[in-house]
Each structure stands twice: as structure tokens, then as C-alpha cells.
Design a protein around this nucleic acid. Structure first.
Length: 494
RNA sequence: GCCCCCAUAGUCUAGUGGCCUAGGACGUCACCCUUUCAAGGUGAAGAUCGCGGGUUCGAAUCCCGCUGGGGGUACCA
């Protein structure tokens, strides 16, 4: 079994493209087939030079590899269509169709076509199905006009009558039937000589021995053309499986580059783990059973089956992705998480670039404090910044009013802070359990509940009311910083 | 407009004629744990299985129609 992912380098790789690639990859790995990457750069107008690199890098980041492709080579290369075009592959095959009477040279220009289309619409016919007059000319006549220098395209000579049918693995094998009167003579070769998708992908799929075509649902309407073309060549029609589109969050249309944050290369900087994205994407349009959701790459490979792919579209659900990402973050070891977080800390200016060994050690020490509070790696700096920056009450810092617990006043808070300073100051062994004992003891002596006391200390030390567990925090912060921050807080209330 | 596809809670889904008083997850809410926030645990609300007809002893599951949603309609992919 051989499958492929064939993106066109018109920009960064869309997350929906990754899902398509992922299903192809899972299919190939599950059945022990080959997964091919092929670059379809036949659109000269939309070509983006570094898009191919982005596609490769994005796929690799998510954890996909390919058996044959532009950078790894293979027996059916080259794997870039512009290079195949230079070899004359498409020209040779279109010639074959021309000779066999399955295609013809069309001399109708784009301008004329636009006029015809407009006129058709003006007459109330919204469906414009073009069939060039040359479809009935002898091939020699077509060649003569072409020889005169008139630009032309090569179009499929679609049978006027009849219908074309094909089945789809995702849609339970029931046949999709399309009447030929609904179809038109599509362009196969542009006037530039470059093939169009419908032609190029098909020739390549055949030449590369692709057996199964897993692609997005938006290709269903053009599949009849492809089937006709396979028949015209006398080639075996591959098995089709059209994957459901990923819909926008509001359900209005498919994910779009313009309206949604779908650049694969941005998920890293947004704090997502590739394993989480991989797992999430596998669940967009596919499921294993009624319970299992968290699955490793290996588990996904062994469990994947095309029969369980959903036919209906799946909405993009960022909250679910976040949840999954949190689960995968919690699976990381402290050291691994520290390593993942480091770039974000550097980026935020909390660590030097590159970080010193001391900084790295300190970060590793802090990681357990935020480990299970992280849903995105990018949240780390905001959760940890006060360990690296001065914390003070006032205009440049936190609001001193935060220090005062409910039902208490400034004077009471002040004495609490002073007492806390005193109690902590005499702790000899600066570690979490000892610090906790000291403050619990203080709460009893002061006849103050633990909540307000700890809360005030938390604000004094972190500048916020929501923070990691207090005593681990104090222990990591150190005696000097803790005591000075308590003094600063007390001064603000004095 | 025309063609094609799809249709279970707000979302992702399980379910392929009786195990369904429709299961799981995200999200929401409550409680427990608890120094805050998380995590974890327990529980709740939330679906007349889009609607209407059939077929059948029996339908979320099969058939038809309708409605709704999505996709396509380029010398783009």
C-alpha cells in the first residue's frame, strides 16, 4: 500500500494539511506501506519560495517522516512537480491523451472564457459548463492552429453522455454517481505548458504507484474527472478515502488561513507539544472506541483504521487541544519540562540568552511548582516571573490593597506581616516543611486563620493572590528575598 | 442557482435492528481534597438521537421526503 501527502507550496503549512498528512502517515505505518511526500508546485502565481521548507519542518515537528520525498529521494523521483515538468512527464502524457482523442487543444482565451461565463450568467444559467468547439476538430487541424503560434490549453474531452461513479472508503462504500452533463472539459495543461492539479497529481500518483488516495473532502466534486482520466489512460483507479474537513470553531465554513490561527509553525511558539497536537489531530475525524482518547504515536499507529474515519466535518476545538496539551505536559519529567520551558523564559527576558548553568538549575528547581498548572508552555513566564523580578507594592508593582484579607483591616494585616517576618526570620533550616511549621504555629499564636495569614504572605512575596503552593515558593525564593519582600509589604501598610 | 457530501448534548465522539432507562471526553456547575490557583476525586445539568413519513414484533441504527449544515462550481490547489 502506498499513500502520499501532496501539498502545494503556496504558504505556511495549514493545520488541516497536517491532519491529512497524519492520516496518510498513520495509514501507511499501520499497514506497513509507504508514505510519500510530493510537492505540487504547479501554480506559478501563488508559489512561495520557502514554503517547501516550512512544510517539511512542520511535518517533522509534529513527528511525521516520509519514505520518499524531495529531500529523502526514492525510486520514483523527482518528487517536486516543477522538476517533473522539466522532464517532460506531463507533456508526454497529455500528448498520449491527445492522440487517443481524450483531450484537445483549446484556443479559447481566458478573456473569452470570462465573457462566455458572464453571458451565460446573464441568461440566468449559473452553471457554466465549458466545452470547446475544438473538441470536434481533427487533431491535425488543432495542431495547425497551434503551429501558427496561437496560445492554447489542453482540455479533457469529457464524454457528453453517461455518468461516472466511484466509491469512497469513508462513506461506507456506497457509490457516488455524477452525470456527465454536470461536468465540463476541464483544463489539463495551462497555456504556459504547466499541468493543472487534476492532471499532474494523477499522472504522478500512477507513476509513483500510489494505491490509496486519502485527501480532504473538498476533492470529492472533482473526483469524477480523475476517474475519467484514469479510464482514459487505461490505468487502475486507486481507492479513494475523502477525509472530513475541519470546520471553524463557530462552524461557519472550514478553517481558513485568513481568519484562524492555523499555521502549524506557530503552535510551537504558542506552547503546544507536538505529541499533544498529534493526538488531537488524530481525533479530528477519527476515533478508536467509546472511551480511549489519550494515545501515543505507537498506539495510534496500531489502532488506526480507515473504516473508523468519520464522514461528517469536525469543528476545531481549541479548548480540547489545550486540555490534551496539559495532559501531555503533566506526563513530562521535570527535566524535560524545564528544557521545553527554557526558550519561553529566555524570550520573556527572565533568563539570559543563553541561560547560565545556575539559571538552568534554578529553573529546574521551579518547574515542579508550575508543572500541573500549565496547559500551554508559553504560560510559564507569567507564572514564574516573580522569582526573577523584584516584587514591590505601589504604583510600579502590585496593589497594596491585595495584601489585606477580607474582614481584616490594614492595621491587622500590618501586624500579621511583621509577625510573619519575625517567625520566618528565626527559621534555621530554610525548607518548605520548616517554613510551614513556623507559619502554622504563628497562626495559632495570633489566633488568625491560616487562610488570611498565608494569603497575605503570598501576596507580599509574589505580588499576586494566585500563585504556586506557598511554602515551596518561599523555599525556592530564599530567605533573603522572602524577608525583604515581607518588609516591603509591611512598609506599604505602615 | 446547479452538483456532491453530511446530520447523536454547546463541541469532539461511541453506537451498524433488541445489550440504549443513548456510553466517553472537552466545556459548564456543585461538592470533596486544600493556604490561593491548579491537578486529582465524586457528582450534576445538558440529546424528544434535526423534522416528517414508512419498513419491522422492535429503529439512533434500514428506506423515502423535507429541513439544516458543509463542500465544489478557476488556465488555484
Amino acid at each position: 500500500m502506498r499513500v502520499r501527502f501532496a501539498p502545494s507550496p503556496t504558504g505556511y503549512l495549514h493545520i488541516g494539511g497536517v491532519r491529512t498528512a497524519l492520516f496518510n502517515w498513520l495509514f501507511a505505518r499501520h499497514y506497513g506501506g509507504q508514505f510519500i511526500l510530493r510537492i505540487e508546485d504547479t501554480d506559478e502565481k501563488r508559489f512561495v519560495a520557502d514554503a517547501t521548507d516550512d512544510i517539511s519542518a512542520s511535518l517533522r515537528w509534529v513527528g511525521l517522516d516520509w519514505d520518499e520525498g524531495p529531500d529523502v529521494g526514492g525510486p520514483h523521483g523527482p518528487y517536486v512537480q516543477s522538476q517533473r515538468q522539466a522532464l517532460g512527464i506531463y507533456q508526454q502524457h497529455s500528448e498520449q491523451l491527445l492522440e487517443a482523442g481524450w483531450a484537445y487543444m483549446s484556443f479559447t482565451s481566458e478573456e473569452e472564457l470570462a465573457e462566455l461565463r458572464a453571458a451565460s450568467e446573464a441568461r440566468g444559467h449559473k452553471a457554466f459548463r465549458f466545452r470547446g468547439p475544438e473538441r470536434d476538430w481533427p487533431l491535425e487541424q488543432q495542431r495547425e492552429v497551434a503551429a501558427s503560434g496561437k496560445p492554447y490549453t489542453i482540455r479533457l474531452k469529457l464524454p457528453l453522455e453517461g455518468e461516472t461513479r466511484f466509491s469512497d472508503l469513508v462513506r461506507g462504500g456506497s457509490e457516488i454517481v455524477v452525470q456527465h452533463e454536470q461536468l465540463q472539459d476541464i483544463v489539463l495543461i495551462k497555456k504556459s505548458g504547466m499541468p493543472v492539479y487534476h492532471f499532474a497529481h494523477l499522472v504522478d500518483d500512477h507513476l509513483m504507484g500510489v494505491t490509496h488516495i486519502l485527501r480532504a473532502e473538498e476533492w470529492v466534486p472533482s473526483t469524477p474527472y480523475h476517474v475519467v482520466l484514469y479510464q482514459a489512460f487505461g490505468w487502475q483507479v486507486p481507492v479513494f478515502a475523502h477525509l472530513p474537513v475541519i470546520l471553524r470553531q463557530d462552524g461557519k465554513g472550514k478553517l481558513s488561513k485568513r481568519k484562524d490561527d492555523v499555521a502549524t509553525n506557530r503552535f510551537w511558539e504558542r506552547g503546544y507539544l507536538p505529541e499533544a497536537l498529534f493526538n488531537y489531530l488524530a481525533l479530528q475525524g477519527w476515533s478508536y472506541d467509546d472511551k480511549t482518547e489519550i494515545m501515543s504515536r505507537d498506539e495510534l499507529v496500531s489502532r488506526f483504521s480507515i473504516e473508523r474515519v468519520q464522514a461528517s466535518g469536525a469543528r476545531w476545538n481549541p479548548e480540547k487541544l489545550r486540555d490534551l496539551n496539559g495532559i501531555y505536559i503533566r506526563k513530562l519529567s521535570a527535566a524535560a519540562l524545564a528544557e521545553q520551558i527554557e526558550p519561553f523564559m529566555v524570550q520573556a527576558g527572565l533568563l539570559s540568552n543563553p541561560p547560565s548553568a545556575d539559571e538552568q538549575a534554578y529553573l529546574l528547581r521551579l518547574v515542579p511548582l508550575v508543572h500541573e498548572r500549565l496547559e500551554e508552555l508559553s504560560q510559564a513566564p507569567e507564572l514564574l516571573d516573580f522569582f526573577f523580578q523584584a516584587v514591590r507594592p505601589g504604583p510600579e508593582g502590585y496593589d497594596p490593597a491585595l495584601l489585606i484579607p477580607k474582614k481584616l483591616d490594614a492595621a491587622q494585616t500590618l501586624s500579621m506581616l511583621r509577625a510573619a517576618h519575625g517567625a520566618l526570620n528565626i527559621v534555621e533550616d530554610w525548607q518548605s516543611a520548616k517554613l510551614e511549621a513556623a507559619l502554622r504555629d504563628l497562626s495559632e499564636r495570633l489566633q488568625v486563620k491560616v487562610g488570611p495569614l498565608f494569603g497575605t504572605v503570598r501576596v507580599a512575596v509574589s505580588g499576586r493572590s494566585v500563585a504556586p503552593p506557598l511554602f515551596d515558593m518561599l523555599a525556592a525564593l530564599g530567605r533573603e528575598q522572602t524577608l525583604s519582600r515581607l518588609s516591603l509589604a509591611a512598609a506599604a501598610l505602615a
